[in-house]
Design a protein around this nucleic acid. Sequence first.
DNA 1: GCGACAG
DNA 2: ATCTTGTCGC
Length: 240
Amino acid sequence: MHAPLPLPGGLLPGWDGTIDGVRALQDELAAQVVLEDGFIDPPRLLAGLDVRFEDDGTLTRAAGVLLEADTLRPIASEVVRRPTSFPYVPGLLSFRELPALLQVLACLPEQPDLVFVDGQGIAHPRRLGIAAHFGVVTGLPTIGVAKKPLCGRCVPPGPEPGARSPLQHQGEKIAWVLRSKARCNPLFVSPGHRVTMDTAADWVMRTLRGYRLPEPTRLADHLASRREEKRAAATSRPLF
DNA sequence: GCGACAG
DNA sequence: ATCTTGTCGC
């Protein structure tokens, strides 16, 4: 038994307050991840989600963007804020960011057919990164797009855009290390839920627009970083 | 035992 | 993640 985390009760029903307890819950959720394609093909709406923090982590801010899949044009976006309720612990990131992600998803005008989340999908020690956790909880097809790996080893992919090499962990292939753009560090793309490893990488490639990040994640990232949006929108300036 | 460690 | 301008390289 490890040291209990200093948290207010009621966050996780039935949780014993220990890190081992959270890990046990992750194992249960990870068993529910589906690694087969299960989305409408072709999808009509895509969504990009990202989370940031304010006031040294006291406040959690989530940004969500809804895009038209065939044009990659944003048709709606939302930003929500809420008090942070869980500390940052490597490997337990989803428990810190999930509440805000679910809240911003609920604020979008329509349900997306495929979601891109900033962070790992199954490329996690217990195969439950934020994108996988989000996918299992919402039931939505999800892809995890991370800028850095959490675990696993790999041989760097070639320099040409589209080049990819497997990220391996404990004998399993958990993500594609994908070179989305020349001269840029590769992305770590893994299935979140109801998506195949190859489909995940394919959709990242086909939603690129000349930047390192695919449009869904890039727009959500951009929106989540805008200082002007840190506080209640004073001016009603268009978001795009 | 030591180091690494998504956001 | 966050504190933060200009600057070097392709």
